[in-house]
Simulated scan of single mutants.
Amino acid sequence: MTQTVFAPWDDPDQQPLIRFQNVTKRFGEFVAIDDLTLDIFEREFFALLGPSGCGKTTMMRMLAGFESISEGRIELSGKDIGHVPPNKRAVNMMFQSYALFPHLSVWDNIAFGLRRDRKSKEEIDSRVTEMLKLTRLEKFARRKPHQISGGQRQRVALARSLAKAPKLLLLDEPLGALDKKLRQDTQFELMDIQESTGTTFVIVTHDQEEAMTVASRVAVMDEGRVIQVATPANIYEYPNSVYVADFIGDVNIIDAKARPMGENTYALDWIDGQPPLRAESKTGFSEGQQAHLAIRPEKIRITKEKPEDAPNALEGKVLDIAYLGNLSTYHVQLPGGQVIKAQTANTRRIARRDITWEDPVWVSWSATAGVLLEH
């Protein structure tokens, strides 16, 4: 049985759940969101990713109804929600601080919204039990928030947000307060919960690793604009700009002038006195056009001997080594002074490593290893 790939954004017949249409948000003179158009589909786990101040939280607050729109419109299920008050939207928001009621038990925290909606006792009991099970909190139902761990409090906040079965759950830096190990575990829990409930999740984060782990698609933002929207794999492998390449993961950027050499093949003149580099690109570049070659460190080989058959091989010396347990990143200085990072998996014990500081080495990569970018 073949598994169908979840990609509603590739299907022209699919209607988005959320639609931002030419949305602008101003605070006085300051433009926080600049003419933004974006579609998010049902059942998506969508990440808004960018540095502080890029507008991602403002977007989320507009979706929740806490901020008004200066221009444009936001639709939820085809309806304009610009004038719908927050409590009338099928949207729930989970805050970074979790905002749990300290005097209420885990059970009562989860039941809070249902009681306010005047649900029957049977409905509340059944829904809270379901949420406790979903978030694996049954054992903690009678405890108060201060009697459980940070990760458990985070799950209580999630259970409370999902109890009212919103169409859309907004998560603002939800894992920011957790330590790295717990954060990673919780990311997978979030993905499982999102999948089993089928709720559309939109998460705001400045943590690229988190966005790449949990999301079906990622929108990389800068200064109120969306720079690229794509699946995590495509954002990583096919960034559309130096900004995106640089924001996601580690990358080497080599500035050069492009010379067409045949179909989709270019020579790159990058520094005087060094042979041109070779790159393949489906994006067209004209003779002498400025280009930027973005190559991930794991796609660069580092060797002591000159490789025989590599289309790109440069000599340098090891300036620095960052040992990350499973990986080592070598910083190699080239003759022109530029530093290239090459990454290798540590399959052998560190004592048996054959390349060390100050060693003369060769870094090499194929013509298809990098992405040629215009800007």
Rank of each mutant, 00 (worst) to 15 (best):
Q154D: 04
I295P: 00
D80K: 06
T303F: 06
I81D: 00
S126Y: 12
V214F: 02
R43S: 12
I300S: 01
T4D: 14
Q333W: 08
S126F: 12
K167D: 14
M1L: 10
R217M: 09
S366D: 15
Y238W: 13
N264W: 02
A111L: 00
A32D: 06
P307T: 01
A256I: 08
L178G: 03
R143H: 10
R26G: 04
R136E: 11
V363S: 01
V202Q: 03
L327C: 05
W362M: 07
A267Y: 11
S241P: 00
L277R: 04
E210V: 09
D117P: 00
I148Q: 04
V339S: 11
E287W: 10
M191D: 01
A211F: 05
R142T: 14
V361I: 12
D359A: 13
A165M: 13
L104S: 09
I227E: 12
D13F: 13
Q208A: 11
R160M: 07
I300K: 00
P86E: 05
A47F: 07
D80L: 04
Q194S: 10
H331R: 11
Y266C: 02
S52G: 10
R225Q: 13
T37N: 11
G273Q: 05
D192G: 11
S241W: 04
L319Q: 15
G82E: 01
T37L: 07
E287N: 13
L178D: 05
G337L: 02
K56H: 09
G336N: 15
G55A: 08
L100C: 03
G273R: 03
T4H: 10
V242S: 06
